[in-house]
Amino acid sequence: MTDRAFTPSQTVGPFLHIGLRWVDGPDVVAEGTPGAIVISGQVFDGAGEPVTDALVETWQADPDGGFAHPDDPRGGAAYGGFRGFGRCETSADGGFAIRTLKPGRLPAPGGATEAPHVNVSVFARGLLDRVVTRVYFADEDNAADPVLSTVEPGRRDTLVARPVDGGYRFDIRLQGDGETVFFDV
């Protein structure tokens, strides 16, 4: 048996810009990809101030509901260059923007279907671990989604992106009024 030395807990920031850069950055698909959308927004702290040194990470299915992953042979191939994964550092105003394709519906246990959504992780100073949420789309039928239905009705809107020119707007509030719903994963 080997003795282990434990180190004290540390927050996940502020060195995100050094250690967590992703070579393709916020581009899940290349610029000019047919059907591409941009999911943009800002990350806010509990006082309503922009978080200028956060990192927003996304993972999602392609428009047919497949993942660009070796364990899912049906995913990504029909959308040349679709990676399913994006990472965007926040700007001086807490802003982020991910270029992607709108995901398709996913099969869920018991024959249910999950509404189109994007999985989102946020890394930021002051967090001991990432926080995880989802982005749903206001112009989709989200009513029967088995995950969204577990969220208190009055808070579901914190998970819904609104259409804007060229894509969708989704702000992330880490605490306080209108706090985004985060999931235990």
Rank of each mutant, 00 (worst) to 15 (best):
R4D: 10
F6S: 07
F6P: 03
T7V: 11
T7Y: 14
P8I: 05
S9D: 13
Q10A: 14
G13D: 12
P14L: 10
H17D: 14
L20A: 08
L20C: 03
L20S: 09
R21K: 07
V28K: 05
A30M: 02
G32K: 04
P34N: 03
G35L: 02
G35Y: 04
I37Q: 04
V38Q: 03
V38C: 00
I39V: 13
G41N: 06
D45I: 00
G46W: 11
G48W: 10
D53E: 15
A54K: 12
L55E: 12
E57S: 11
T58C: 07
W59T: 02
A61V: 04
A61E: 08
D64A: 13
G66Y: 12
A68P: 12
H69A: 10
D72H: 10
P73Y: 05
R74P: 00
R74S: 13
G76Q: 07
Y79A: 01
G81L: 04
G84F: 01
F85T: 00
R87F: 00
R87D: 01
S91T: 10
D93A: 05
F96A: 01
F96S: 01
A97N: 01
I98D: 00
R99C: 01
R105G: 10
R105Y: 10
L106M: 12
P107A: 15
A108R: 09
A108W: 13
P109I: 05
P109D: 14
A112R: 15
T113V: 15
T113D: 09
P116V: 06
P116C: 06
H117Q: 13
N119A: 13
S121L: 15
S121T: 12
V122A: 11
F123G: 01
F123D: 12
A124D: 12
R125C: 08
G126N: 09
G126I: 04
G126Q: 11
V132D: 14
R134A: 04
V135Y: 04
A138G: 03
A138P: 03
A138H: 06
E140Q: 13
A144D: 14
A144P: 04
P153D: 13
P153M: 08
G154W: 08
G154M: 06
R156H: 03
D157I: 00
T158C: 06
A161I: 01
D165G: 02
D171Y: 10
D171P: 06
G176M: 12
D177Y: 13
D177P: 15
G178S: 09
E179D: 05
E179G: 09
V181R: 15
F182D: 12
F183S: 10
D184N: 15
V185G: 14
